[in-house]
Design a protein around this nucleic acid. Structure first.
Lengths: 130, 130
DNA sequence: ATTTATGCAAATCATTTGCACATAG
DNA sequence: CTATGTGCAAATGATTTGCATAAAT
């Protein structure tokens, strides 16, 4: 059975402070190290894998960059700002019916999809207008 | 100005034999090496970057695996079979209007998106029924 | 002749893994 | 106790890069 270790608890606690910010494993590691200087990067990666496996957080793969961890578990997508690199949530209810819109003759079977939008976040779009 | 080297031509030729198969850079390198055993992996990667830059092929980022090169330049998406790993094209005309379906109040600006579907390819789906 | 391209090896970046040791239950 | 978790360092996989040399124009 799984054990309740000090490092696990610290990672969970730190994860909590990152709510909504889509941190990378390394960002989390950095922060955890402040509280627990002896923790190893491997342990943080392992714990993050575990909590993602358990469904506590969602691991988000981004094209051509490090994975992120997202505490928002609902059905949504992600967008990366081309200018500042911000990763943020995009609510896309229309996407929920995406499977139904696949050609009816499909012989294959879609069970999931990874989507990442790129463009400009609100801040960058606004700053460009000035 | 760009030069017309033997290695570039060989990569282009090999790329041609891979039409529709979404090869990784390494698969291409392997094949090219058969014709040109002294070519270096770095050169193949560099040439592929160049041709993708020029729009001759499309570089496709997949979540948690190596990039692919796709000679199909039209508007389409990709799907990976969970069972056999096959990467194949998915025509999704409905997706072309995806930007219009973003919330009208969006303050951000979408200029592109990366999407990869996962599930079962036709072959694997069929083989599961037996 | 000059400049771009190549080969090699090393570097990088994100992440995982083997293994001996620590520790939670 | 004893199995699971951790730390470390090394391994991995994909890709890029610095640099001296080769080759295309």
């Amino acid at each position: 059975m799984k054990r309740n270790t000090h490092q696990q608890q610290t990672v969970l606690d730190v994860l909590d402070t990152f709510k909504g910010t889509h941190p990378t494993a390394d960002k989390i590691y950095e922060q955890v190290s402040l509280y627990m200087p002896t923790i190893s990067r491997a342990t943080v990666y392992r714990i993050l894998n575990n909590v993602a496996e358990e469904g506590v957080v969602q691991r988000v793969h981004l094209p051509a960059s490090a994975d992120r961890y997202d505490d928002h578990l609902g059905h949504h997508y992600h967008m990366r700002c081309n200018q500042c690199g911000l990763i943020f949530d995009v609510a896309m209810p229309v996407m929920e019916s995406i499977y139904k819109k696949l050609p009816a003759t499909s012989e294959y079977e879609v069970s999931g999809h990874d989507i990442v939008f790129t463009g400009l976040c609100a801040k960058c779009k606004a700053s460009n207008k000035q």
